[in-house]
Every structure is written in structure tokens, then in C-alpha cells.
């Protein structure tokens, strides 16, 4: 393969784009452990800001994790069967429903939050609890779970698998839990990671839905950016990175694993 000017021009653009993404991340991570950002790294490193953030916002961070997990449970229970029906029974009604389901992604979170506030704002016990935020998160993340699971189900010839299981005498629920769910696992796993990451980072809806007692991690972040010194905001961001990074890495690993077996069958065909 010849490497000409075109190759290097594209490489340069890619590297510039990469720096654009990475430099601020590194800077904020460093700022979070620097004694004084205005003086630079020479002022020394410290964990002081991190501890300060933890003292101030530990509750928000834990609340976010709890909401994310609750959101995962709800989207699993509602989303996986939904995906199954959408894939298994394609038709006009299911298509309309699918369209409806993805609307919360297209419609701005702000509008959605406004709608929830107008409808349920008066239900005081509900309005002031974390369940209100959970509602918004479920609405926002459910389409991602459904789509991720449905994509895998659509690709695996679910009909044949199910007919195979049925021919062996398995009833519906048995097929559902022993054949469909295990085979849709990659999609469920990918969807689950997506839901948790999205929920932990959700701000648009949450900002409108939260109360002083139900602040989530990103709400606390906005708070820290607006009212604290740069180092504290950075330290908080660093904590967020640490929390979210394993999820991201798991997602990428999952995507990689999904690619490999397909290649293997390709070569098998080739040698036939």
C-alpha cells in the first residue's frame, strides 16, 4: 500500500480531531488534582478537591447510581418483551408503536420534562421523590434498550430457533427464557450498558425534574461548574470519568466481540 500525501493529510485531520476530543479531557482531569490551576501543575498535585467533592456531592453520585440501576431493571422488564413482539410480529400497528416509542429520543428532553411536570407536578409525594426522575430516565432510555435487543433478535432468525424449540416440546415461557433470552444476550447486554451510561449522564430532563433533595450527579456537576472554583468542577468531572469509563470500555469490548465470530464464518465459507 502506497502512503502518499493524501494518506498523511487524512491522518493529520484524524489526529487533530482526536486532540480536540482528548485534550480537554486530560486538562480537566489534571485540573482536578492540581493545587492551583491558575499557577499550573508547578503548584503541585493534591487529592483535596476530590475529597471536597465527595463531601459535598456523595449523595448525588450515589443517587445517580441507584437511579441508573433502577432504570435498568425497568427497561429490561418492559423493553425485552417489547423488542420480542416488535420483531416477531411486524405489522402496521407494531410499526406505529415503534415510531411512538422512539419519539422521546427526538423530542427535546426539556419538552418531555415540561410535560411530566404539568401532568404529575401536583402529585406531591411522587414529584418530590427520586421516582419522578426515574420516570424521565426510563422514557428516555427505553427506546435504546428496545432497539438494541430488537436488532440482535432480528439478526438471529428467532422464528427458526423458536420453531426448533417448539418442535422439541417447549412451551412459550420455556422458549422465551431458555432460547430467546439467552440468544438475545449480546443485544440485552449492549442495551443495558447503554441504558446505565445514558441514565448516569442524563441532564436535560433531570435538571427540570429534580428537587433540592433529589440532585443527581450531572445536576451536581452543573451546580459545581456554576458556583465552585475550577478545580472542584474538574475534580467532580474526574469522578464522573472514573465512574463512566468501565462502562464505556465494556461497551467497546462487547462491540468488538460481536464483530469477530462473523469474520470466522466468512473464512470458513471461503475454504469450502
Amino acid at each position: 500500500m502506497q502512503r502518499d500525501a493524501k494518506f498523511y493529510a487524512q491522518l493529520l485531520l484524524t489526529i487533530v480531531l482526536c486532540l480536540f476530543i482528548v485534550v480537554p479531557v486530560v486538562m480537566s482531569a489534571l485540573a482536578g488534582v492540581t493545587v492551583n490551576v491558575f499557577k499550573g501543575l508547578s503548584s503541585g498535585l493534591t487529592l483535596r478537591w476530590i475529597f471536597q467533592v465527595w463531601d459535598l456531592y456523595a449523595h448525588s453520585i450515589l443517587l445517580s447510581v441507584m437511579i441508573a440501576l433502577a432504570c435498568l431493571v425497568v427497561t429490561l422488564v418492559a423493553g425485552v418483551p417489547l423488542a420480542y413482539v416488535l420483531v416477531r410480529r411486524p405489522g402496521r400497528l407494531t410499526r406505529i408503536f415503534e415510531e411512538l416509542l422512539t419519539l422521546p429520543v427526538a423530542i427535546p428532553g426539556l419538552a418531555l420534562a415540561l410535560a411530566l411536570l404539568i401532568t404529575y407536578g401536583g402529585v406531591s409525594g411522587y414529584r418530590s421523590s427520586w421516582l419522578f426522575i426515574l420516570t424521565g430516565h426510563v422514557l428516555f432510555t427505553l427506546p435504546f434498550m428496545v432497539r438494541s435487543v430488537a436488532a440482535v433478535m432480528a439478526a438471529m432468525d428467532i422464528k427458526m430457533l423458536e420453531e426448533g424449540a417448539a418442535s422439541l416440546g417447549a412451551g412459550f415461557w420455556r422458549r422465551f427464557f431458555t432460547v430467546i433470552i439467552p440468544n438475545a444476550k449480546p443485544g440485552i447486554l449492549a442495551g443495558a450498558l447503554m441504558v446505565v451510561t445514558l441514565s448516569i449522564g442524563e441532564f436535560n430532563l433531570t435538571w427540570m425534574l429534580h428537587t433540592p433533595l433529589t440532585k443527581t450527579l450531572p445536576v451536581g456537576l452543573a451546580d459545581a461548574y456554576a458556583s465552585m472554583r475550577l478545580e472542584v468542577g474538574s475534580a467532580y468531572t474526574l469522578i464522573f470519568f472514573v465512574l463512566i469509563m468501565p462502562l464505556l470500555i465494556a461497551m467497546q469490548a462487547l462491540a468488538q466481540r460481536g464483530k469477530r465470530p462473523r469474520k470466522r464464518t466468512d473464512t470458513a465459507e471461503d475454504t469450502l
Binding site: 480536540f20 476530543i21 479531557v25 480537566s28 449522564g201 441532564f203 450531572p218 461548574y225
Partner: peptide, 23 residues
Amino acid sequence: ITALLTLPLSFPGTVVGFMVIML
């Protein structure tokens, strides 16, 4: 490079805003 480019995939808007301030 590929991994780094997809890094901000799950950054909420507030964090993205902070990244712009850093930049």
C-alpha cells in the same frame, strides 16, 4: 485513536460544556 475518538460518547451536556471551557 478510534477508542479516543469515541470517548465522549456518554458525556452529558454539562460535561461537554465544561470541555469547551477547558478548550
